[in-house]
Every structure is written in structure tokens, then in C-alpha cells.
Design a binder for these strands. Structure first.
Lengths: 339, 339
DNA sequence: CTGAAAGCGCTAACAG
DNA sequence: CTGTTAGCGCTTTCAG
């Protein structure tokens, strides 16, 4: 028989109201009573009934605020669809979602969104935008007020967020190396392209790649910093390919994929060198179809959205704290046939 | 404002009991009243509240029976863990799970399990065992009694099961071909190994592979039927490898992977030919570590378990019918680094 | 064929 | 500090 709050109350000789107070850490219970109740709870292995809880919450649903970049950024659509999937499952289980879209190039916009959610009395926040001191301060403020914040997709480091859900950048670098090793079996030279080595996040993939090729006969010819711009990427890669005729592969860790592909095309090397990159955007699909890109490595963005919301829900409704500070979503190897 | 059963009742001038009867298709409501209520339901876009429903069901939980092969088959552990994950989320939401482990080599055992669940009054059944006429008959019987059956992992074709959740065999063959193409760029010959071409399920991967290599310079040297046995596999593959010195790759569609790996080893070809197989079992991990196997293709078995239970839950508790007859779980490409 | 009422387990507001 | 009570929305039994 499943144990209820009422049984605990009877066994402890108190009312269920009191048990509820103890269970939810509300103040106003004599310490000794609290302790006795806790003992009984442990002993009976009480597990709260979700349906009952959710139903009771229906009067005043738990509000979860979601801060996202503008809707037109396609990458986030997938994340949003994951959030939506979780929301569908959680439909009618005592929550209400408030979406806030903020300009992701202005930190003030992100901060303002958090502020707004705090003011409106949100119970939890899902934040998927850039890292910055101002943002950090706002997240910490929410945390102080007891509003848990989950960062998603890109972390806000050193903040009081409850956990981060996103990709394992280093792992994707290691996988890229594994793929290269399978395609380039003899002594060979590869180019690694990244945005900006000053950022930890960008270095992670490159260092994973380095680790991954250790012990193989693959040599990194150069690491090119492209700063995410088409021009820089195109020019630097093209120059390298022209000056150096023995490049066997390219690992595009981060940066402007279009610029890189064009450089390969104009160097007349399309399909002649092995090419591994990340994520799937139209340019990548195109490049795969043309046989320029061999593999792309994906971080299940749907899963990111799904997990983030679930974590917040579980914390808010069942009190279950996330079991880790970092939740890495599945890293998968993709070829067009596997989509 | 969310609309409730009570509002519908008021608007229709009846009691909530009557609305409930209509909503759940129970008999004993005058046709005209039923119709009027249905109209209002549509008009108001009524969505039942899950928490309330689940809570009410708590008196007499919906019982879902799960028929699985014996616990010691490791492959099924992953499926079970997926079922468990769904069960955890559904904890306290009005269901109760009954696991039944049956000998998967005896159809009578599977049939008896279904019979038992029917007799014990299960509301839904998850079936993950072999296909057979006797099984089909039992599934159909359950279906007639209004007990939905979901087949998982391997389908029971032409039965009245509500849907099937499993892998897309053909797709995995196509992916295998895509991987081979990326590793074997020149004219090359591959061996395809399968269990038994008489079965549709086994032919599917092979035909997917054939499709996938179309237009490439890969040629299928031979399709070997191994009948899942170590001996057959070992002997046939070894013989082929010895008699034929120009095999560049092996696609192990189904069969005894251990036998095949040993044949490759003893032919002195470990690491010298490209090798793609399916799933991940200890032998495969070993083969990957030794550099014999390049890629393995996986069908997320956890997802199978998770989805299956969710589908049954949604059907039973919210009345949402599965949107498709076939649910294919994600097919993913795996190398050791990506695990 | 239909209505009324009790109850699923928990929360919250109000007394005391 | 603690007990009581009235719901949350739906199902189910018992009358009528």
C-alpha cells in the first residue's frame, strides 16, 4: 500500500497540515515535532503523489519563465521543440510556461528578461543566452530569492544557476578525431578551424581533437582562427590550402561553415579532402550532398530543451534536485542517411 | 481560463457525471444529450486535466502488463531501463506496472503471459517477444477485449496490436552503406553477412545496404547466410576470406558477431578491411578497441522502452491514440569515442 | 437514463 | 505553533 500524508499524520499524532509544513520545509513547526515526523517519513519511505500535488497546484500553477533568443534563429527552434515536447507531457500537471524572447546581442535585454520574470513571480527560470557579468548578477539574484535557474545550451559560468544542460564540447572534438582516423589511415595532415581560441568554449573542441588524434599518424598542420566571419574564414582557409598542397582533411570545430566550404570549393578540393564539422544547418546539408563534408557531429538540441524543462519541473514539483551540475546531451555522428 | 468538466455540465444543463460518461464513451446516455455535450466539448476545446484524472485513477490504478524475455538477456536491460525511465516520470500518475518474464524460445510461454495478463485484468500490454500464430491469436484476443497491445523491439505482424515501436532495419542498412562509401572510396568489394534471408526482418538491412551503395564503386562480393551460429559464421566467412583475396570490407547485418570477428582475425585481416556492424555488445566493444570494427549502428533501445510505455500511458490515461502504426527509434552511428 | 455525493492525496487559508 | 476545512478536476457508486 502506498503511504500518504494522512498516514504519517496519524502515526505522528498530528494533523496533515503539520506534516505538509514539515515536508515542504515551511516554518512554524516545533523542532521536536518536525524531527519526529521526518523519522516517520523515512521509516515509511513516503513518496509524495505527483497527481495530487499537481492537482493542488492547479489553483496557482507553478510558473516557469523561459528566456530565449529571438524566434527567428533557426537553431533554437529545435531546442524550443524539445521544451514543447516536455511541456506536452507535463500538460495539466500544474505548470505554466512564460516564454520571453530577448535580443541575444544585448546583455541588458537578457538581464531585463530575468528581472521581469523575478518581478512577475516566476518559480523557476530556464535561461538560454549569453554569459556576462550583468547576467550573472541577475541569475544570482534570482537564486537568492529561491528561484532556481537552469542554463541551457550555453552556460553562465560561476553563477548560482542550479545546473547547466548542454553539449560536451570536448567530447565532440574527440569524436571528430575518431572519424578522421577512420578515414585517413596513413600519415596525413589536417587543418583545424575554430572561432577564437581565447574562449574556453572554443578551445574545448580543439583540445578534444588533439587528444583524439594522439597515437595516430594524423598531424595538425595548422589551427586557424576564423572569428566566425565569412570573410576571415574564406580567406584564411583558401590561403592555407593554396600555399600548402598536402592537406588531407579539415576539422571545422567552430566558425563560419559557409566560408570554409567556399574556400574548399574554390581551391578545387571539393571531395578531395576529408571534412568533419558540427551541427546541421542548410550549408552543412548542402555540403554533405555535394560530397564535401563527410560527417557532422550533432548535439541533440531537442534533448537539451526537453531535459532542461524536466529538471526544473522535477525540482519545483517533486523537490528532486538535479543529480549533476552538468547535464551533457547525447553527441551523435550524422551523415545524411542517418537523419 | 482552462475549461473543466463542470463548466461543460453547466453549459449543457446536465450533471458532471453525465459529461464524464459521454467523454469516456460509456453507455447509458440519451443520444441527443450525448451529441449536445460533444458539441460543447468541441466548442470549448476541452482538454482533460491529467493530474485530476490520474488522481482519481489512484483508487484503482491502470495496470500495464509488460512481457519480456528472461532478465539475463543483456540486450533487454537497456530496453527495460527505458521503460523504467518512463515509469519514474509517471510515478504517482495512476499506473501500476506488472512485469512478466517469459522464456523467449517457447511461444507457449509468451502466449501464457498474455493470457495471464488478460485474466488478471490488465488495461494494456507491452509485448517484446517473438512473432508466431499463437501469439498473434492472443494479441488479437486482448485487442477484442479492448486491451491495447504495443509490440516493442520486434513486431508481431498482422496482429491487432495498436502499434509497433522499434528500429528501422532498412535505414540501418542504408547508413551502413553510407559509412562504407566514406571509407572505401575507390572500386572495392564487400561481404554482407546476415542470418537468414527467408525472414523479412533480416532481408531489410541487406536491401537497405544494396540501395545505399547504388551509384558507388562498391560491389557486393557475396551475401553470406550465417543462421546466427558461431560455427556457421566462422566457417563461411573464413572460407570466403581465404578463397578471395580482394575483400575490402564487411557489413555484418545480422548474425553471430563473435564468429565473424574470429574469422577476420584468423584470416590475418584484422584492421585491414573496413568493418561495419550493428548494436553494441561486449564482442563489438572488444572488436572496436582492437581496430577491427570501424563503426557500429545502434538503435536506441532505451528509447524503445521509454516510448512504448509512454504510448500506452497516453492512450490509456488521456485517450490519445498513437499517431502512427510504426514508431521508429533513432538510428545512430557509434564509435567508441561517442559512447 | 441521469443526478448527487464521496473521495483520490495534497495545499493553503483561516482559526485557534 | 497546530488543527480544520475547503478545494484542485475527475471517476465512481448509489440512488432515483
Amino acid at each position: 500500500m502506498t503511504v500518504t500524508i494522512r498516514q504519517i499524520a496519524e502515526k505522528a499524532g498530528v494533523s496533515r497540515g503539520t506534516v505538509d509544513r514539515v515536508l515542504n520545509g515551511r516554518s512554524g513547526v516545533k523542532p521536536e515535532v518536525r524531527e519526529r515526523i521526518m523519522e516517520i517519513v523515512d521509516e515509511l519511505q513516503y513518496v509524495p503523489n505527483l497527481a495530487a500535488k499537481a492537482l493542488a497546484f492547479n489553483k496557482k500553477p507553478v510558473r516557469i519563465g523561459i528566456v530565449l533568443p529571438p524566434r527567428d534563429i533557426t537553431f533554437f527552434e529545435q531546442i524550443t521543440s524539445g521544451i514543447q515536447a516536455a511541456a506536452d507531457e507535463l500538460q495539466g500537471l500544474g505548470i505554466q510556461l512564460d516564454y520571453l524572447y530577448a535580443d541575444n546581442r544585448r546583455v541588458e535585454a537578457g538581464a531585463a528578461a530575468i528581472r521581469q520574470l523575478i518581478d512577475e513571480g516566476a518559480s523557476g527560470i530556464l535561461y538560454a543566452m549569453m554569459d556576462d557579468d550583468l547576467i550573472r548578477a541577475h541569475i544570482d539574484e534570482a537564486a537568492e530569492l529561491g528561484i532556481p535557474v537552469v542554463t541551457m545550451n550555453s552556460d553562465v559560468e560561476q553563477s548560482k544557476r542550479i545546473c547547466f544542460v548542454g553539449q560536451d564540447l570536448k567530447k565532440s572534438g574527440v569524436i571528430a578525431a575518431g572519424l578522421m582516423r577512420r578515414m585517413l589511415r596513413g600519415p596525413s595532415r589536417v587543418l583545424v578551424i575554430t572561432s577564437n581560441l581565447q574562449f574556453h568554449a572554443h578551445r574545448a573542441r580543439v583540445s578534444g581533437f588533439r587528444e583524439g588524434i594522439a597515437g595516430s599518424r594524423i598531424h595538425i598542420e595548422a589551427v586557424i582562427e576564423s572569428f566566425d566571419r565569412y570573410e576571415d574564414t574564406y580567406n584564411k582557409v583558401l590561403m592555407q590550402l593554396k600555399s600548402d598542397s598536402n592537406v588531407d582533411g579539415i576539422y571545422m570545430a567552430t566558425g563560419h561553415i559557409g566560408g570554409c566550404l567556399d574556400a574548399v570549393r574554390n581551391a578545387g578540393l571539393a571531395g578531395k579532402l576529408r571534412f568533419v564539422c558540427n551541427d546541421i544547418i542548410p550549408e552543412v546539408e548542402e555540403g554533405m550532398k555535394q560530397g564535401i563534408i563527410d560527417f557532422t557531429i550533432m548535439q541533440n538540441p531537442m534533448q537539451q530543451g526537453y531535459r532542461s524543462l524536466r529538471i526544473l519541473y522535477d525540482l519545483l514539483l517533486t523537490g528532486k534536485r538535479p543529480d549533476a551540475e552538468y547535464y551533457y546531451t547525447e553527441t551523435s555522428i550524422v551523415i545524411p542517411e542517418s537523419l
